[in-house]
Design a protein around this nucleic acid. Structure first.
Lengths: 174, 174
DNA sequence: CAGAAAGTTCAGTAAGCATTGAACTTTCTG
DNA sequence: CAGAAAGTTCAATGCTTACTGAACTTTCTG
């Protein structure tokens, strides 16, 4: 049996190359640094470089050496975060997962919700200090104002990104 | 002994009011939701509403019911994050902590570093797929492009904020 | 409808990390 | 310089939470 051993031909074997494993692990660490489970990062990382782009639970479990249960709960989390989606194929009992197009805009919305929460908390704090001298309120005013600023500007920026994307898709309209 | 019991007069007793405790706890949860230790959030929360704005380690330990060790390591973390700073008073052995002015701009820089890391990781991934058909590369191109976009735009937005702030401080120059 | 394959749930385990408390170091004071 | 107060470090602990594996449910096939 001839077996081609190369970092380039792993599409044939569907075994992750050393470099690809490394990429997957890096994404795992990245997710951890943002406070998300490492395994969620691994799954997302693999779905970014896998061939084909759609991978079943069994595929993921095999490649990432993880249990079915872990794959199940982490894919659920990733779907909830809006980073991946589930696709099904007629005549195939299995579900497939793939990274969701425009996943990152969705991430921006999540971020925005966080910013809004911080602004609201700052306002609660200001209410507690409403009878205190202004210089004691400064800390909280700064917190409130900058978050209100981001809350105002980020959606606009996101919109601009989406417009630019649309333009890049139809360059003949420019 | 006459003891004034009121939610408004706690500046005299330096005991946190129920509402203030609640604020502190909320900030703790907020920090957790961003992947930071809850105690760091509590400290930061208290420093946002304390009177005076400067608080010693002993103050923090007493108000937050935490150990000296915990205060020590969490203040170190907050300083490293750029959220608080240490101030010393001549003729006073103690160190005081206070929220750092413009702390949030510093947070933006941290965020920017994260975005840059994501863009770089996307580029690593693209390199792994450089011999694959373009449609397999799309996932990573999108990730790379949007992060490059934020990397370009966020600093500008931050600059605009700082300018607006400077203007608000010297309205006579407008 | 029986059997099998796919997927989910959940109790138990393991690992990581915040937190404590005690020992240690540093810094100031009389 | 001795003593005390402030602050840091670090080993041990407890808690949270990711992860596993087995039992269970669902969905498809012959």
């Amino acid at each position: 049996m001839l077996r081609i051993i190369s970092t380039e031909w792993d599409a044939l074997t569907q075994e992750p190359t050393f470099k690809k494993t490394h990429f997957v692990e890096e994404m795992g660490l990245m997710f951890e640094s943002v406070g998300l489970p490492r395994m969620a990062g691994r799954i997302f990382g693999w779905l970014l470089i896998s061939d084909p782009a759609q991978q079943s639970s069994a595929d993921l479990a095999a490649v990432l050496q993880a249990s079915k249960g872990s794959i199940s709960s982490m894919t659920r989390l990733l779907i909830q975060l809006g980073l991946i989606e589930r696709t099904s194929v007629p005549g195939d009992r299995r579900d497939y997962f793939q990274v969701k197009p425009h996943a990152w805009s969705h991430m921006t919305e999540q971020r925005l919700a966080q910013i809004a929460a911080f602004r609201q908390l700052a306002e609660k704090g200001l209410d507690l200090l409403k009878d205190d001298p202004p210089f004691l309120q400064r800390r909280l005013r700064e917190m409130r104002d900058i978050h209100a600023f981001w809350e105002r500007e980020l959606p606009q920026l996101n919109q601009r990104w989406e417009q630019e994307q649309a333009k890049a898709m139809h360059p003949e309209h420019s």
